[in-house]
Amino acid sequence: MHPAIMGLITIVVGVGGCIGYFYFSNMLLDKVLFPPSGPNAGRNINRANMIRPWLFLFPALFALGLYLAYPVFATLWLSLTDRDQGGAFVGLANYRQMMSEDKFWEAMRNNMFWLVVVPAMSTGFGLLAAQLTDRISWGNFAKSLIFMPMAISFVGASVIWKLIYDTRPEGTDQIGVLNALWVSMGGAPQQWLTIIPWNNFLLMIVLVWIQTGFAMVILSAALRGIPEETIEAAIIDGASPTQIFFKIKVPQIMPTIVVVWTTITLVVLKVFDIVLAMTNGQWETQVLANYMYDKLFRAFDWGVGSASAMVIMLLVTPILVWNVRNARREMR
């Protein structure tokens, strides 16, 4: 069967199944199990209302549990076992092996570098773009163009930037912009992606290019939410535009800046496609997610692969805790 037809059938079955499940389970509850009539009508209504939320929640909880919660523990277990020994428990052996590999430390170092540069640059450019575009008539048009890379896949963006970093032999016309500029300033053509450690930075630029639009959109909304009076008061007190920006506006949108920063941090921790497509971790550009993919699907070493996945989870955990605490505070 053609996969497209299969896809169509899946949509019909999936959507129909969902609607059918919700409809019939509700009917069963209301008409058969606890009908709101007869001698126990009142008690039945209460009981039905106790059960109904779980009917509504069940498919989602099941999928969440199976596809996100269970794998966390399964991966933890895999990282403590050895596949070659039939899944025997080996304690921290996988972690020890991972720690002894240079590639792992290279990935860790690069990841830390990514974690500083990408969120900082994206948020910085995003704030700049938000502040500037809010003041001009064609700001919305400018915004949607800066926002556009958000829709482009990491792999597509890698192709786009690989063209920019392209190298032709000396003496011929350069087709990559970076080399064309470099040569026009009198340099010799460079293989940019092989120059350690700057090649890491060139890969980060790709992600900054994608994420800046996101930061800009969020921060722009935050800037608009600043009460006018605070700015007017500052103007009357004789503050300069720079002072207004840094001393009045930025402190007021600080919570939003933190949210943007952590959101981009999460993206950075999972970055994989860009490195795989552009260098595949060669020339000391390895990152954790690609290291993990290498271990899992090229070396088929599930133990060390899972151990490195747990390292990513560990790095995410502070953000997870912080998000959950914030969410609980908002609910109260």
């Binding site: 996100l68 999460l266 692969g305 899972s306 996945a309 997870l320």
Partner: peptide, 10 residues
């Protein structure tokens, strides 16, 4: 925020 990397093998 759970990274989907964890979910692959299981």
């Amino acid at each position: 925020v759970v990274p989907l990397q964890l979910a692959l093998i299981p």
